[in-house]
């Protein structure tokens, strides 16, 4: 008997499939009120440009807010922000500037 076609009853093995939404679609599920300017920033751009090689802010962010920038300083898409705060602790240089959005702006969860 061939090993490639074993003698077994004709059953179909499970092939579970799940379609995951894109991040853009996921972010579309939460309301965002734009305060007009960013509640996030870097304290000293020079540290990002010269001292940082790991870009941990970009790896940990669940909302793709932090993106590698051309000059070595991250580009910040603050309007994606889910306000978890991960970037603040992840940055090994403590170089993330983080303020609460003001006057009810920023993300609003309905479910949470």
């Amino acid at each position: 008997m061939s090993t490639t076609t074993p003698n077994v009853p004709n059953v179909t093995p499970e092939e579970p499939s799940v379609t995951n939404d894109s991040l853009a679609d996921r972010l579309y599920t939460v309301r965002y009120d734009d305060a007009g300017d960013s509640h996030l920033g870097v304290k000293l751009p020079g540290i990002c440009a010269e001292k940082c090689h790991s870009y941990d802010c970009t790896s940990v962010c669940p909302a793709d807010v932090w993106r590698e920038g051309e000059d070595g300083v991250p580009h910040i898409a603050y309007e994606n922000c889910l306000e978890c705060g991960s970037c603040r602790w992840a940055c090994p240089h403590g170089n993330v500037e983080w303020n609460y959005p003001t006057r009810g702006a920023g993300v609003s969860y309905k479910k949470g």
Partner: peptide, 21 residues
């Protein structure tokens, strides 16, 4: 997408995505 998890969530639609620390 894990084989033990996917059958529980298949066909679902995302109502909300969130994150926290």
């Amino acid at each position: 997408s894990h084989p033990a998890v996917a059958p529980l969530v298949r066909g679902a639609r995302t109502v909300e995505y969130g994150a926290k620390t």
